[in-house]
Amino acid sequence: MQTKKTNNLPALSTQIRIETLKGLGKLGFGHVGGSFSVAELLAVLYGKQMRYNPEEPNWPDRDYLVCSKGHAGPAVYAALALSGFFPTDWLLTINTPGTRLPSHCDRLLTPGVDMTTGSLGQGASTAVGIALANRLQGRDSYTYLILGDGEIQEGQVWEAMSMAAQLNLDHLITFVDYNKKQLDGYLCDINNFDNIAERMAAFGLEAVTVDGHDTNAIDRAIDQAKASGRATCIVLDTVKAKDCSFAENVFNNHSVTINEAQLEEGLSFLNAKLKEQVRDDD
């Protein structure tokens, strides 16, 4: 087993944003909002918590990640590239014909992607199945599931969560990216799903809410989830398009266009932040 770990998780989250933005910037458009809101989570998973081997992406004893909000694929790809699964150059091919990095996660195309997602809600059930299959086969692997907050409007998510509790899948850790927005606007204006931790707890899961842009808080919550002996949900309080200088404060920032000036401005903001994070670390 080989894992590429780092002590500086905030810096890794910024690197994930930088590489994501480079890829989407080359293309000129993409799902910046939901990719940027999960950067800290992906940094904690790939930088510290997950067990994986980039030389053997299908290693049977690995931890699995199901990014059910499949449109955050670009951020997952950035995390995978930075973790050594494939060269970061690949990120410049996102959504181009014949690419191995499609807009939504595809387990058949991308080394390190464990499940195909894109039709929202479905990753919840497949993650439950993966966690159960690993338990049946005597593996101690963890299955990490990332749901969007808009995504949990899908009834299938709740079917899956109820089953996760029923089966007591203590090696399934679910995250909800609570960035408060879906494609058309704010959840609270469309079909509100607030009090997510309470709802998850009502379905039988151990549930907490943490600051989704605080890598330490996420890391601690995962440690506690692993110690809880129960199926756990960690709600990440996040900001859609967090740290994307030209998109964070835009109302419609689910998928945005990116021109050259914006790309340059966005990268320069993130590079400055990275510099600070690296300096703080020294």
């Binding site: 387990r107 059930s125 993650a127 199945g129 159960l132 299959a133 899956a160």
Partner: peptide, 8 residues
């Protein structure tokens, strides 16, 4: 969906 995950 669970069955699909289990098969994977």
């Amino acid at each position: 969906g669970m069955a699909c995950g289990m098969s994977v």
